[in-house]
Each structure stands twice: as C-alpha cells, then as structure tokens.
Design a binder for these strands. Structure first.
Lengths: 292, 292
DNA sequence: CAATTACTATCAGAAATCATGATGATATTT
DNA sequence: AAATATCATCATGATTTCTGATAGTAATTG
C-alpha cells in the first residue's frame, strides 16, 4: 500500500523536476526517491514518469494522478495545521452572536483576519436581536455577544464598552414626514415607528418607542426594507442608512431634538468565569476596535 | 510519520466503535490496531480516544481530527477510483462542442448520468455555433461535436444523423409582424432577421437568409434576448422558444410556407480514424437518443 | 455469584518496509 | 576530454509494522 511519503515524493519530484532534487528537498537519498516512486508505480500499476528523456517527465496518466495526490497532500497539511492548532489550545469553534445593526464593513475585515490567523477554527455567527443575546452568553451557547446596550446592566455576564454607534432617524423618500423641518416628538406620534425587538424578552426594548403605533422586527435588514417600502419611520444605524440615502431610497428626518445622531453604546458580552481559548480571546480584542 | 493505514484505522475504529471490530474489518489483528492508533496519537501528540470507558470514545480533539482524516480518506478513494479508471482505459477528459440550440433538457440528464458512470473523467462542454464545430472535430481539439447540419457534408469527419430539431419563427409580442396572418416571404423581407453565424466560416450559414437586413450572433441565447428586445425576428429551436412564448415574451409567427415547423437535421461529429476511450464512446451512444 | 464473553494493552519475535551508500550507465556542461 | 549531474540497481542495515500470546478489565449470562 502506498503511503503519504510516496505521494509527497511524487508531488515533489514533479515540482522540482528530478528525483535527486526531490531527495535533497525531502532530506532523503536519491535512491530512496527512485525506489519510492517505483514502488508507487507498482502499487498503482500506473507509469507516472517517462524516464526515456534526461529528466523524468510526467506521463498523461501521471498528471491525472498528480491532481489527486496534491489534493490529498493539501488535506494532510490541513490536518497538521489542525493538530498544531490543538496544541496551541485553540478552539474548534468560536460562536459569536451579534446584533445585525453591527454588521459594519470593518467586521468583515476582522472575520477575514480571523480566517487567516485561525484557519482551522470555525466561526459561527448568529445574527440575533440585542435583547436576546445576553441569555445566550449567560447559558454558554455562544462565546461572545456583540450588542447595542440595554438600559440596565446584567451582572451575570461580563460587559465591555467599545464605543457608540450613531443612528439616524429615517423614512422613505415619499413618506409624509420626509420633507418636514424641525420635527418634534409630537409630530412623530401619529406615524408608525419600526422598532427592533428580540423574541425572548418582548418587553425589554433597546430603543424608546415614540409613536403610538409601532411595528417590530428582529433584524435591521428587515426594518430597512420596511422603511424603504414606506411602512414607517425608524432609527437605523448610520452606516446602513447612508447607503440607502445615497441611492435615494430613504431620507434622513429633520428632528428638532436630535442635535447630533443618537448614538447608543455598543458592548461585547462574555460569560463570567469561563476560560476561553486564544481564538475567542483574539476575536474579543479585535472587536474592541470595531467602532472606528 | 503517520500513514494512510493509520488514518484508516482511526476512521474505522470510530465507525465500528472498537479496536477489535476495526481490526476484523481491516483484516488485521487487534493488537495491530491498538498499536497503530497509539502510534498515531504519538505522532500527532493528540489523545484521540478516551479509554477509560468500556469502548474507546472519541475525545473532543479526536473528533476534530476525524473530520480531516475522513476528508483525506475520501480523496484517497478518489485517487484509487482514478487509477481504476485509467486501467479501464477511460479518458481524463471528454471534450464536447455543441451548438447552443441543442441544449435540450434531456442533455442535462445525460451529463448527470455521465458524472455517475465516469466520476473521474471531466467533461469540457463548449457552446459554439454549428458552422465552427466541424473544424474543431477535424483538428482533434474536441472529441465530439453536436451540430445542426449544414447543407454539404464534410467527408473528413464522421457524421451520425440523430434526428430533427423543430424550429419556430418567432418575434417579440409587440413586433410589427406579431399579429399578422399568412405571412409570405415578401412580408418578411423588410424586417430584420436574426441569424446564427459562426466566427470561422462567415459565409457558411446553416439557415436561409430571408430578410434583406440580417443581424448575426453566434449563440441562440443571444438571439433569444435580441428577439425579446424586439430587434428582429428569428428561427429559434422550439424547446427554447416555447418557454418564452408561455411567458408572453415572444410570439410564434404565422408563416404561410411553414406548414410544419422547419426541422433541420441534427448530427454528431467525430474525427475519422481516431480511437476514443469508453467515456467518449458512452457519450456518443447517449447523444444518439438526445432527440426524443 | 461464578463463568463466559468481548474488549484493550503490552510484549517479544517475525516479517515487511524503508533508507543508505556504493556502483555503473548515461546525458549534459565545462 | 573531463567534470558534473542524473537515474537504476543492489545488498545491507535500520526501522516500522504485524503477529500471536498473555494478562487485565468490564459487561453479560446462566
């Protein structure tokens, strides 16, 4: 039966172009490679190289086998990377629950870096409304939570303030409130407000309800779509709203009591008294720089 | 260094639940498996099984490694399938050039069957206008050609007639010719006709040019889009046109001299005096039944 | 409860595999 | 023409793997 060493010899010979060079590279003797390839050829009953020329050249069949051999060796590298990862105490998986309002462009940069730094650790991202995330962290079903803070602080989980996320009040371009200047709270009351609400603690809303009539969704993308459809007005994360404002799909509202964009605090949640591995820790540190 | 046998032992032990069962299945002795797994654990420096219980149970680390091991073994199976394929004389690749007018639904069934019967042989499908295919077959750049016949027969390639493909004359729903009854050839002349034309032999058109003004494309999908856009009328394969007619994007023209759908012959081309492998041969046979 | 069965770990020797270094043949470079 | 580099082959030694025996342990059975 052929072994991984045989496949490695084969691939390396193709790479370097000669048995001798392959042997040097793999720290073996030339005859070892020569015999190794020969025995691989016997095992597979396939002639891999044409030895009639100066340097052994791949046969058509050999190049077909080569693809498979390389593929196997890549997987072996992955396996070795995984064991190295285990030795460094890295987790098999990092589970992150985050509010969809926080899907900032910079987040994708962080995810990308994560994939390079911890290639064998998988990342499980759940997009969940902020109010629901605390209990997930508390129960250990996720490692990290990324939320827009609630009014009260839950002492059973660790909080880390990382900045404020500006929100804009927006409505559709043809909404009755669209053109109006200096809106007061009273002006808003008659119009439907679209709010984020978690599924678990229905009463605990992160945002103040201003209008008498409110509709709820548990995802900012849904709210976004509803605003564009003219179903109501809402506070949306500035980075989300600005895209749509630029496309003239929605419009910022001119509200008298919003001198500056309303910017609720953003926090990372972790369970207390839990030991996290380096990947979770790394992610935690990176998320601290999520906002600007 | 661990070997494929080690990985196989590991995977099989997990599968069967015990070292002994694994040994029976792999035709070894129990102690060989016991030692094999132990040496794998030393090589990786990872404890794969928890031996404290009755039957060895995977550790968390073990299950992480297992995924990689299984993946490697799957690839090894693929490599072995490829060598078996080589031994059966199967080709690494079958190259098919076909007219886009012949992308019948049944063709996908044939491709699917091909992938199951020749899993390690790849298929290269080029969508090329019929007039250009002959020379590709002749020069050996493709193994099989699937064309709508030209008037004259090229004696340097092998022809196999497999049926007739009905064409409908169609135009856009709002085209001037759309509603008219009993169109004669003279009625068509003033309106732009959209024709298929190959890039190589520009003069050799498979279809008669009726209108004074004609536009050309080398792909029926393009012509389809042009008809829908109202750029002209065309003969389209019935199976293609019917989809769009059902969606009221185009309309069949009522032409006096077309009592029945115009149905040019369809042929398979192969190079003369070439030896093809079983995969090409199989494809050839299947394509014979392409047209019902 | 004792006997049986099925399992794993360990060990020493046999068997197989693999690596080494030397040698000869051939092709390329100097 | 000499020097250099390559590959195949071979006998030997090193290493790994397999085997069969033995012993210990947990579950099952009568």
């Amino acid at each position: 039966m052929y072994s991984l060493e045989h496949l490695r010899m084969f691939a390396e010979t193709v790479e370097t172009g000669s048995f001798s060079a392959c042997a040097r590279k793999l720290g073996k003797v030339q005859s070892a490679v020569s015999q190794g390839i020969a025995s691989l050829e016997v095992d597979l009953d396939v002639e891999l190289f044409d030895r009639s020329t100066r340097k052994p050249t791949l046969t058509a069949q050999g190049s077909r086998i080569l693809e498979f051999a390389r593929s196997i060796l890549r997987q072996v590298d992955d396996l070795n990377a995984a064991t190295a990862s285990i030795h460094h105490g890295e987790e098999a998986e990092v589970r992150l629950a985050m509010d969809s309002a926080l899907a900032l462009p910079h987040l994708h940069r962080i995810f990308h870096d994560f994939s390079e730094r911890f290639p064998t650790t998988s990342l499980d991202v759940a997009s969940i409304a902020s109010p629901d995330i605390g209990s997930l962290v508390k129960s250990g079903r996720v490692d990290l939570g990324l939320i827009i803070s609630e009014a009260e602080i839950d002492n059973e989980v660790e909080h880390c303030f990382i900045g404020n996320l500006p929100f804009h009040a927006v409505c559709a371009i043809d909404h009755p409130l669209a053109g109006r200047q200096q809106l007061s709270m009273n002006d808003l009351i008659p119009y439907r407000e679209l709010l984020l609400r978690g599924s678990e603690q229905a009463g605990l809303d992160a945002f103040p309800k201003m209008s008498t009539l409110a509709w709820f969704a548990n995802d900012y993308r849904t709210i976004c779509a509803m605003v564009i459809d003219g179903l109501g007005w809402a506070y949306l994360p500035a980075f989300l709203a600005e895209d749509w404002i630029a496309q003239a799909k929605m419009q910022r509202m001119n509200i008298r009591f919003d001198h500056k964009p309303w910017s609720p605090p953003v926090e990372i949640l972790t369970a207390k008294e839990t030991t996290h591995g380096p990947a979770t820790w790394w992610m935690y540190e990176e998320l601290k720089s999520l906002i600007e």
